[in-house]
Design a protein around this nucleic acid. Sequence first.
DNA 1: TGCACCATCCCATGATCATGGCATGACAAG
DNA 2: CTTGTCATGCCATGATCATGGGATGGTGCA
Lengths: 215, 215
Amino acid sequence: MPVSAAPIRIILTEDDPALRVHLGDAIASEADMLLAGSAANLADGAALVARGGYDVLLCDLGLPDGSGIDLIRQSAQRWPEADVLVVTMFADQDKVLASIMAGARGYVLKGDAMAEALAAIRAVHAGGSPISPTIARQLLRRIQPAPAQPSPLSDRELELLRLLARGFSYAECAGLLGLSAHTVASHVKNIYRKLEVNSRAEALYEANVLGLIQP
Amino acid sequence: MPVSAAPIRIILTEDDPALRVHLGDAIASEADMLLAGSAANLADGAALVARGGYDVLLCDLGLPDGSGIDLIRQSAQRWPEADVLVVTMFADQDKVLASIMAGARGYVLKGDAMAEALAAIRAVHAGGSPISPTIARQLLRRIQPAPAQPSPLSDRELELLRLLARGFSYAECAGLLGLSAHTVASHVKNIYRKLEVNSRAEALYEANVLGLIQP
DNA sequence: TGCACCATCCCATGATCATGGCATGACAAG
DNA sequence: CTTGTCATGCCATGATCATGGGATGGTGCA
């Protein structure tokens, strides 16, 4: 008979006492879960995070002494293997997104049945990210390449710009492209004119803003 | 009595004849959907895409004359407002991810009930991205910041590096930071020594690789 | 106490950059 | 034919950068 898996150790930061107790009780009554800590504010939550020893952090955002997003960030930095679920309201899509950008891997909706919350905990611990298609769509917007703008630069100019971005001197670029250094300088003049800049760093910054080269 | 909404115009690229007909029939029999075109290979699919006039592209990946990923890319570039769903097998998680990176907004699983496919079409058309928590997790890995490496640079050095990245001269940086230009040059020497580089562009490149500054 | 790092500042100087000006030939579009 | 772009190439020159060398005072650690 194999030994049972270790319970999911959960810490909870939630300032609403009723919800904190309700969630805490629900977790404590699950055989595969363990309530490893509970906090009512950011400072106490931060102490729990600093101490470690948890698999999942449930984190409310509106805390009396600060934003739960900071706590999410701390957890993600300090314990990147630990999962974080935001405890939030349905209307708070922007906040969910901000939390995800800070390191959360899903959310638990206030007002949902406890069974939903427990399922989200199990899902995130199992390596998933329980998010809605709407949130997923917002995420896709952040990772899918934008439709290409027509580039103001010619292919040759882009080729040279990539070398400049690596830090090669004109002479080195010339060698790499099989040109004269004078030609490189001529291309640079054209590139800077088109991008309306006056230095390499400015050009690289602008090219990055315009999506012309990979950052 | 309000007029009914326009049907979802769907084009389909799928080389398996049985599945193409099956999907096509399912779509055509839905009151809110319209099969706007059907192709059995990449070239015909590309012609459908080029013609436009569709809201959702259903796209198989393994086509006899090339990869459906190219078609997805074309659709995303040419018609960024159109939605794309990959037609794929459950085991093809890597391909789903690659498709999503190319511009798809969800997937339809071969072998699933038609009702699932139709639901996915409606979901994506309604602005969602119907993806599993596992796929979502993989996506999060791409957008969430990696745990910060300890930076070799001091805060002051980082502050200066950000200004250098914008293209400010030493004199300008000095003015902005309330320092002497000599001090700026001294900081630059330290920055370049720590990053083991010899020019601003090299420093910026390296800083970007190390995640020290935002690209 | 000694050492390293941080932050600040300075000098001197060679190397590189940036840019105005010039040129040629090829190609495409009106 | 004219014009503009692209790709290539050159000259001259002032501005800026990069860097070796030097300095001070403050802080933290062994």
